[in-house]
Structures are given as C-alpha cells and as structure tokens.
C-alpha cells in the first residue's frame, strides 16, 4: 500500500469513526454532569471504610487493588522486556564508558551542572519517599513516589558519570528490589487469604484518625511496595538504555 493510499483509507475510516463518535456523544451526559453513582458512592464511604483521605489511593490500593496488581505486573514485564530485548547481540562488545575518539577532548561535566544536580539529589529522594509513603493522606502514592525516586539516580548520572550511576544502582540489586516490590504486593494479598479473608482484603488495623500517616492499613503498605518496585523498574530501564548509548559497540566480540 502506498502512503497516499494509506492516507485515503485513514480519511475514510476517520470519517466513519467521527460519525459514530458524535452519534455516541449525543447519548452521553455532557461534560461536568457526572452521572454516577460509582464514584459518588466511593467518595461517600471511602474515608470511613478505609481511613484513607486520599480516595484515589483508596481506589488504587484497596477497591481496585487487584487491578493495580495487574498494572504493576505490566510494568514489571515491560522492564524485563527492555532488559531482554537489549541483550547483547553476538557481534557486540562492551567498551568502557569513556569516549574513545582520539581527535577530540571529552568535555567534563560542567561545575554548574554538577553542583545544581548534586544539590537536588537529597531533596528528590526525600520528596520521593514522602510521596511513596503518604498515599493514604494526600495526592501521592507509590507510582508517583517511585518515579521521583528513580529521578534521583538520573541526577547522579547527570552530575557525574555513567560509571557512578552503575555503581550506585547495580543491576542485580535493582532486579532484586523490583522483584521484592512486585512480590510483596502479591504477598500482602495472600496474607489476607491465610487469615480467611478475600484476596487483598485490608487486614491491617486502620488506625484511629483518618488522614494520619499510620492509618489505612494495607493501603500504605501496598503503596510503599509499589513505590520501590516502580523506582527499581525505571532505574533498570534507564540504565539499560544508557548502556546502549554509552557502552555497547559493534565489534568482533571478546
């Protein structure tokens, strides 16, 4: 199929889609007129039922925790997939992460960049942990916190060198942490089974004050496990992609 033929097919199909979409919109309640009742019911009962004031987290880690477990394993498998797809081809070899070109000098990381990024590493880690451990109270949670934590390691790379990044996040350790995070989420559910409750039932004490950090039972725990899993997964992914750029070269193999 030539590009212009493809464009025509797209135009026809797009026109058909638009017609059906507009037709479907007629039957929908307009923007801002949420019909409910699912979200309204959850908003009404979640705080008393789970003692979590962040209802989005309550949905993610309690009401739809099984669904989130699936999403988390998509992330897990994607990270594994990146590592598998980027495995070395037969004719490739590793080089050191130092530029080999003889005809140019490698510019060192400028002091300005290094100072700023180093100054940001500490606060980034703090914010990441804060987000990952406050899912039950505020707009945060393991997914957001994990990403911010992974960013701290990218700052290390920006401030220094790939070697330092690698030393701080060895693949075996990141692998293990990722697996522990994902496995613990599933294990929290299995613990509920052992107590005779349904899978992923909130079995821990809910705490007396809704909105306190030590409230909401397994919501806080699961959020924490998701946090370390997301952080480890993204450190792995970023490390693999950087390795492709900086270390793997075509060659005859060793």
């Amino acid at each position: 199929m030539t590009p212009s033929q493809r464009r025509w097919v797209f135009l026809v199909a797009g026109g058909g889609f638009l017609a059906f979409y507009l037709w479907g919109l007629i039957g929908l309640p307009g923007f801002g007129h949420y019909p409910g009742p699912y979200g309204d019911i959850i908003n009404a009962i979640a705080v008393t039922q789970t003692h979590a004031t962040g209802v989005v987290s309550a949905v993610n880690f309690e009401y739809r925790a099984f669904d989130t477990l699936g999403e988390e394993f998509i992330l897990f498998i994607a990270a594994t997939g990146v590592a598998t797809v980027l495995r070395h081809l037969r004719q490739e070899r590793d080089t050191s992460a130092v530029d080999e070109a003889r005809n140019r000098d490698v510019p060192a990381t400028s002091d300005a960049v290094a100072v700023v990024t180093l100054a940001f590493i500490g606060p980034t880690v703090v914010v990441g942990w804060y987000l990952a451990s406050h899912a039950q109270t505020s707009p945060s949670g393991g997914f957001q916190g994990g990403i911010v934590l992974a960013t701290a390691f990218v700052l290390v790379y920006l401030a220094g060198q790939f070697i330092v990044f690698k030393r701080l996040s060895p693949v075996a350790l990141a692998d293990a942490i990722e697996a522990i995070g994902a496995g613990s989420f599933a294990a929290v559910g299995i613990a509920a089974l052992a107590l005779g409750a349904a899978y992923l039932t909130n079995i821990l004490p809910l705490g007396s004050t809704p909105g306190a950090v030590n409230s909401a039972g397994t919501i806080a725990l699961i959020s924490f496990f998701v946090g370390i899993e997301v952080a480890a997964a993204f450190i792995l992914i970023i490390g693999e992609l950087l390795e492709q750029t900086l270390i793997v070269r075509e060659g005859t193999g060793r």
């Binding site: 949420y34 409910g36 699912y38 979200g39 908003n43 989005v56 987290s57 949905v59 739809r64």
Partner: peptide
C-alpha cells in the same frame, strides 16, 4: 468531589 475511579 469528582469521580476518583477514573483518576486512579
């Protein structure tokens, strides 16, 4: 409040 499910 808006629907928390779609936000999640």
């Amino acid at each position: 409040a808006v629907d928390p499910v779609v936000q999640a």
